[in-house]
């Protein structure tokens, strides 16, 4: 089975489940309408979801993904408390700057998830990604060091190791 067919089947079932969950079906007509809508979606955009061949060990990878989600939620709560502290302080104790970190991830989806996670964790915001060198430019609200290795250690390392196991 080719990658494109797999992707189309996955998209079809996802669209069907979404449709049925949104309409709270009570009748068989709803299911027929859902299948029709899911078919249209599959024909239009079916092949876009999966781009690279999946690896083995799906169960272990999903466990890692769940662990990643919990760590992400914890970091996000910390980020919000940090912003609340900054905003309520009368003197605004900020020291912003743009630093550069290096990422060893190669997979495109992994890079996207890493950049989004960095945006939602304490004090950091991804600005740009350089494909050739694998460097991420990050706006940091409270610069602790300007050394590239140290910054990578502080900002990126906590997500990067987990993401490597999830995606690669």
């Amino acid at each position: 089975m080719s990658l494109r067919t797999k992707s189309k089947i996955l998209v079809f079932f996802l669209a069907l489940v979404c449709y049925l969950a949104l309409t709270s079906f009570t009748d068989y007509q709803e299911i027929i309408a859902g299948i029709a809508a899911a078919l249209i979606v599959t024909l239009l955009a079916g092949g876009l979801l999966l781009q690279t061949e999946g690896k083995k060990n799906l169960f272990k990878r999903s466990l890692k993904a769940v662990e990643y989600m919990f760590r992400f939620l914890w970091e996000m709560t910390k980020a919000n408390l940090h912003v609340a502290y900054l905003v309520l302080h009368p003197n605004l104790p900020i020291k912003p700057g743009i630093v550069k970190i290096k990422s060893s991830l190669k997979n495109e989806s992994a890079i996207t998830v890493l950049a989004n996670s960095i945006t939602l964790t304490p004090g950091t915001l991804t600005i740009d990604y350089n494909e050739k060198t694998g460097e991420l430019y990050i706006h940091w609200i409270d610069v602790k060091s300007v050394d590239e290795k140290k910054d990578t250690e502080i900002i990126g390392a906590k997500f990067e190791n987990l993401l490597k196991e999830v995606f690669e």
Partner: peptide
């Protein structure tokens, strides 16, 4: 409203309002 430039505002607003 309080932070000084676009990037800082974007940080605070994106994190907190999304959460």
């Amino acid at each position: 409203v309080r932070l000084p430039d676009v990037y800082n505002r974007l940080q605070a607003a994106t994190k907190c309002v999304t959460f």
